[in-house]
Design a protein around this nucleic acid. Sequence first.
DNA 1: ATCCGGGGAT
DNA 2: ATCCCAGGAT
Length: 223
Amino acid sequence: MRGKRERLLREMYAAMHARLGPSGWWPGETPLEVCVGAVLTQNTAWTNVTKAILRLRDAGVLASGQALLSLPEADMSELIRPAGFFRLKAVRLRNLLRFLDDACGFDFSVLAGQELDYLRPRLLNVSGIGPETADSVLLYAVGLPTFVVDAYTRRILHRHAMVPDDIPYHELRDVFMDVLEPDVPLYNEFHALLVRVAAQWCRARAPRCADCPLCPFLDGGGA
DNA sequence: ATCCGGGGAT
DNA sequence: ATCCCAGGAT
């Protein structure tokens, strides 16, 4: 029965929102920047990504997709070095930029008019773009209603005994999308709240369950 | 199962 | 000086 899971997810959302308020969170100033961040943040912390983005901004190459594309790969690697896996990510970012260039010429409103089920597989077909990166681009840069799942999401739901630890990406995504109506602001805010809870309370080591907004939903946490 | 690399915590 | 953290490809 999944009416129970639906109620639980909505209550968790409400609890986080009540404690933390609206996040107003967007992982970048522009859609282009969101795409850059989506690649750079693969398997790395946001603090590192921020440094890399700043370096790109200061170098003036973040102004347009063309500027980024015309940057030699060696220069790109060096600029994004703080984000880690920098040679790999320079290639992956280039792949994504090339895709965006010929899919829409960096006019993201064109992509916003396309079907999620059409665009998502195409994005996943780009080498270096996996499900999380694709969903992050689709939700935050394009504005299509796909739920972004990450290690934080997995950890929080697993610790609340809602999913197995090794649940595949698409199944975890379905946990949300099977139950939540397609709603970009809702998906945006839900993900943002999970990220904030994971960072401040549901940390990988030394979690602070006692005063976590999701404490009431813990096994034996009352309610 | 292993590789790719950095920053922060311990 | 290590250990730990976080996606995707092969």
